[in-house]
C-alpha cells in the first residue's frame, strides 16, 4: 500500500433505516478501495434496519485496524436526517464538519405523540461545530427523484473530503441499475457542487 495514503480518515454516516446510508457507504468504500486505500466499513444489518436509527462508519488510509471509530474520532459526520445528527454528534471531533440533510423523519414515538421532535437540531449542532445543512431531498427532487438524496449527500461528503477525483462513475455504473445510474451520477455531482459552493471564500455556511 502506497504510503501517500497517509493518516486514517474517519467518516460517520447516520440516518434512518431505508434512507440508503448503506448504499452510500458501500459506494464510498468501493471507490476508496479502487483507488488503493485500505478501507474498513462497519454496518449493522437485521432488526435496526427496519426504520430505526442506523449508522455506518467508513475508515480509510494506509492501514486501518479498528472497524469502529471512537467518540471524537470522526473527521466528518453525514447525517441523512436532522435529529440523527444530534444523536451521533459525539463521534465528531471538535474541528470536524457536520453535513446535515435538511430533512425530518418523525420516529414512531413522535408520531404516537409520546415524544417530541427536538427544536432546531441544525442550530444546536452549529453552536458547537461547523455545520453544513444541505437540502439534499430538494436537490434530488429537482433532478427527478427525491430518493437520490443519498447520492447528493455522498457527493457533498466526497467534495469535502477531497475525494471528488475517485472513479465515482465506474462505481455507480457498476452498482446501480442502468436506469438509475444517470440520475445517481447527477445527484452525486449536484451534491459536490452544493458543498463546494459552501466552501467558497465568503460563502455563508
Amino acid at each position: 500500500m502506497a504510503s501517500e495514503k497517509g493518516d486514517i480518515k474517519n467518516v460517520v454516516l447516520c440516518g434512518v433505516g431505508g434512507q440508503g446510508t448503506i448504499l452510500a457507504s458501500k459506494l464510498l468504500s468501493n471507490a476508496l478501495l479502487a483507488a488503493g486505500y485500505d478501507v474498513k466499513m462497519s454496518e449493522i444489518h437485521g432488526m435496526s434496519q427496519r426504520g430505526g436509527s442506523v449508522t455506518t462508519q467508513v475508515r480509510y488510509g494506509e492501514a486501518v485496524r479498528s472497524p469502529l471509530i471512537g467518540k471524537g474520532g470522526a473527521d466528518i459526520l453525514v447525517a441523512f436526517e436532522r435529529m440523527e445528527a444530534l444523536r451521533y454528534l459525539e463521534y465528531l471531533r471538535p474541528s470536524g464538519v457536520a453535513v446535515i440533510n435538511d430533512f425530518r423523519i418523525d420516529s414512531s414515538t413522535i408520531l404516537a405523540g409520546l415524544e417530541s421532535y427536538p427544536a432546531d437540531p441544525i442550530g444546536v449542532v452549529r453552536s458547537k461545530v461547523r455545520a453544513m445543512p444541505i437540502d439534499a431531498a430538494g436537490i434530488a427532487a429537482g433532478l427527478g427523484n427525491p430518493k437520490a438524496m443519498n447520492l447528493v449527500l455522498l457527493g457533498a461528503l466526497a467534495a469535502l473530503m477531497g475525494l471528488g477525483g475517485l472513479d465515482w462513475e465506474g462505481e455507480i455504473r457498476g452498482t446501480v441499475k442502468p436506469a438509475f445510474a444517470e440520475l445517481n451520477l447527477r445527484a452525486l455531482k449536484a451534491g459536490m457542487e452544493a458543498a463546494l459552493a459552501r466552501e467558497a471564500p465568503g460563502a455563508a455556511t
Binding site: V16, G17, M47, S48, Q49, R50, G51, G52, S53, K71, G72, L77, M83, E84, L86, R87, L89, E90, Y91, L92, R93, P94, G96, A98, S107, S108, T109, I110, E115, S116, Y117, P118, V124, V125, S127, K128, V129
Partner: peptide
Amino acid sequence: SARIEVPPLPSRPP
C-alpha cells in the same frame, strides 16, 4: 469530541 449536552433525544426504535 463535538458532543453537546442536549435533552435526551426521542428514541427511534425499528
